[in-house]
């Protein structure tokens, strides 16, 4: 009786989704996933760390944004304006892989592991501010890639960001090397 009532509350049955259009679209998603190098996917077990690290970065970014923006980096808006300017009115230029690579390097230098136990509170805040800046810049690069229609690059940047936020330095270095060309920043 109870199970019958529960079954009746189903909004959609499996057989309703067994449709050629759904199959084709779902298959395209799987096709796309398989094009991402395995080392670029964030380890599932690090999900909690990633969420905690990202939350810390966002919270700190709100408070230290002033420092971050005067620390030598470009804001997301500036990045976009520069790219639009380079590509002409209304034309966003895709980020060059070298730009992404440099940003990856900046991220690694900032590193969420800036929470060095031996460092001072101020050191940690500076490190986190730099990490927040790197995150914002990566988001800007991702948006530029999307605007330019380079979804492949945008997706690689997203996957890299997720990997970096996990705080796994080795995985991040592997991600940067495999996804963005290693030393090809020049």
């Amino acid at each position: 009786m109870t199970d019958d009532l529960l079954t009746a509350t189903m909004t959609v049955a499996d057989h309703e989704l067994d449709d050629p259009a759904v199959h084709t679209a779902a298959r395209a998603v799987i096709d796309d996933l398989a094009s991402i190098p395995r080392s670029l996917t964030p380890p599932r077990r690090q999900g909690r760390r990633a969420v905690a690290a990202a939350a810390a970065v966002v919270a700190l970014a709100a408070g230290i944004a002033g420092y971050a923006l005067t620390a030598g980096g470009s804001s997301k808006t500036e990045l976009r304006e520069t790219a639009v300017s380079a590509g002409g009115p209304g034309q966003a230029a895709p980020p060059a892989p070298a730009d992404v690579c440099r940003q990856v390097t900046a991220w690694l230098e900032a590193d969420l592991a800036a929470a060095d136990p031996a460092g001072t509170d101020q050191d940690r805040d500076v490190g986190r501010a730099r990490a927040a800046l790197a995150l914002a810049q990566l988001e800007g690069l991702r948006d530029l890639a999307l605007d330019a229609g380079d979804e492949g690059l945008a997706r690689r940047i997203e996957v890299f960001m997720a990997t970096a936020q996990s705080g796994d330095r080795l995985a991040t270095e592997a991600s940067a090397s495999e996804g963005f060309g290693g030393d090809a920043c020049a």
Binding site: T24, A25, A28, V51, E151
Partner: peptide, 25 residues
């Protein structure tokens, strides 16, 4: 985890969403 995640701006995912019967949701 979905509530915490950023929704991907992904053309393929959007296309799959468009094929699902909206009335079911």
């Amino acid at each position: 985890n979905a509530r915490r995640a950023h929704r991907r701006n992904d053309r393929l995912v959007a296309r799959l969403a468009a094929t699902l019967p909206r009335s079911a949701f």
